[in-house]
Design a protein around this nucleic acid. Structure first.
Lengths: 348, 348
DNA sequence: CTGTTAGCGCATTCAA
DNA sequence: TTGAATGCGCTAACAG
């Protein structure tokens, strides 16, 4: 029944004009209204329970006080943690977070990306399936008035035309490889978790090069392509184990914790014990990893740092004076290898 | 610098008036515009790359084509799965989903709840920490024009004044208890995962009654209160195990999978083996549960059914003729006990 | 079948 | 210092 309270109602109750109320309630600096009127306006607003209409404000001002986050799969703890942290980060700066969930579909990703500047947000943070694929579109966005920052693993060879925050994969990976090699591992599997139709990127190569530098020939490395769900990693690795009863790898590195967990499960079901028969390392260091029945070694991403950096880059750009066009910036955070129970020496 | 394309631009290009363009683009039924004009309008819209402003549309129509979802903790796979499924469900009906994350804070929950009808949504789905606490406010919402459906575990003794979808806990719980008892378990622990300051509700009592019916005295049941994170469940149960080196429970039931995983971890670190020394049952059946190194027995909630039912109830109410006021409806879905590796016979 | 008009609630010129 | 207009982009009455 109670109709919506408008600014007009507040103004009337306080005995002032709407714009006066507006200026006061928004604490605009150039208001030299008397202390008394200010008090009256605030009082009226409070008594009436006035809530400004975000929609009207947005329509008028073109500002939404909201930032978007595009992620691949909300169901993946990595992304939900990322969303959670980013929400905290932007909220401190007075922004809401709007999550755009690709649900592991590349075509959905295309659509969401295309609709990005149609979104009611002031800017967006993007964790794309593959930044390279969108390089051209990103360049176009940089021209437009929709600020964007891309996130990702690994530093691109050529810098992107937009703000970016990356995890530097090499440090953590290198430490993991060192650890595995010094534990005597000689045969490796690499599980790259990818969406359907997605390219491998340079990760497998990076892994191979690191192992090569430690004397492990490419022939001793099996590269498995799986989807990025637990299920698919489990199935893929199970199939692999079946068709390879001997000459099996003794160490496995998966591109994310979910895949690592899936592969671990497949190994267990195949009768292998972890880490005695197979050492497993994941990537992301999802909160759950350290609480699994067999705790999972992982290459940790710095969630807090990444999200805070992204929030800062994006919001600074949003709030920068209109004309001012900042050059693209890039920040990089190291990853850290975190050994846990899932890694141990080879039996042999 | 490409300015925003407005409806007016499309209309001009097509040589019609704005409202004509509006009626045509929105495929309103009462438009008897000539096929030819229609084609011209669509063509113009396409060529110009017209994207209607949701903000303006919302301001004008009071409809947002968005529904809100209030959850306790996005980081908890149960809630992220719920969000994911609900998003699918409402999208099929042409709505977006806006996630409101309490981040495990009851005060934040209060705020989000209070701001609910300030939100730019047509209605909301609520998974509250405790429906009873909000009973009064829910009744008020039912009066207002913000449709709401509450979700939850367990059927309330007194029906709520709003639409509701519940998981019926008793079936699954009863089956779990049966299974545990027939495996010879005599001493039990109950881990109720709660936010700080949250009441236990009737769950512990329900559990005790079920066990009593099977001849297990209350003295054989330890009720542990923990937070709802893995960490807190792990710590709480670890502390419990330390102070109770003997007379330990041989079976544990946790109010959600995350707590079950935390407790499981604590048991393992205390040197117990699962299920030989301790059987563990969770609630929710989070997707990950069946892929853990020791797969977790769980009382499954029917995510798909729950979210679809919620979407139907809410959207039907939203789209119901203005005047028509539907009575509160309630739907209930059974839970199903899903035994896995974490449950086995007692050693003794 | 099409065009004109009047707001949705707010912020922001301008006068006063 | 404050009040009266203007319009953000769109939809929905109307009247043509």
């Amino acid at each position: 029944m109670n109709k919506r309270i408008r600014l007009k109602d507040v103004a009337e109750k306080a005995g002032v004009a709407v714009n006066t109320a507006s200026t006061i309630l928004n604490r605009r600096p150039n208001s030299w209204a008397s202390k008394d009127t200010e008090a009256r306006v605030f009082q009226a607003a409070k008594e009436l329970g006035y809530r400004p209409s975000k929609t009207a404000r947005a329509l008028r001002s073109g500002r939404y006080h909201t930032i978007g986050l595009l992620i691949q799969d909300l169901t993946n703890p990595f992304f939900s943690t990322l969303a959670d942290e980013l929400e905290s980060a932007v909220e401190e700066r007075g922004y809401d977070l709007l999550v755009e969930n690709c649900r592991s579909s590349l075509v959905r990703e295309k659509h969401l990306f295309a609709d990005l500047d149609d979104l009611e947000v002031d800017g967006s943070v993007l964790w794309l399936s593959d930044n390279e694929v969108f390089r051209k579109e990103l360049a176009e966005m940089a021209e437009g008035r929709h600020p964007v920052v891309v996130l990702g693993n690994g530093i691109p060879e050529k810098a992107y035309p937009v703000d970016a925050v990356f995890s530097d994969f090499t440090q953590g990976l290198s430490d993991a490889v060192d650890a595995l090699c010094s534990l005597g591992h000689k045969r490796f599997a690499f599980v790259s978790a990818l969406a359907e139709g997605q390219a491998d990127g340079n990760r497998p190569r990076l892994f191979q090069e690191m192992l090569a530098a430690r004397g492990v020939p490419a022939a001793n490395i099996d590269v498995l392509r799986t989807g990025h769900t637990v299920e698919s990693a489990c199935e893929t690795f199970a199939a692999f184990l079946r068709q390879r009863p001997d000459e099996r790898p003794t160490a496995l590195l998966a591109m994310n914790d979910l895949s690592a967990i899936g592969a671990m499960r497949a190994a267990i079901e195949a009768g292998l014990s972890i880490p005695a028969d197979l050492s497993v390392v994941g990537v992301d260091d999802v909160p759950l990893s350290s609480y699994l029945p067999i705790t999972l070694s992982s290459i940790r991403q710095r969630y807090k740092k990444i999200t805070r950096a992204a929030a800062n880059l994006l919001i600074s750009r949003i709030e920068a004076a209109e004309g001012l066009s900042l050059p693209p910036r890039q920040e990089v955070f190291a990853t850290v290898y975190t050994p846990r129970e899932s890694v141990g020496p080879t039996k042999g």
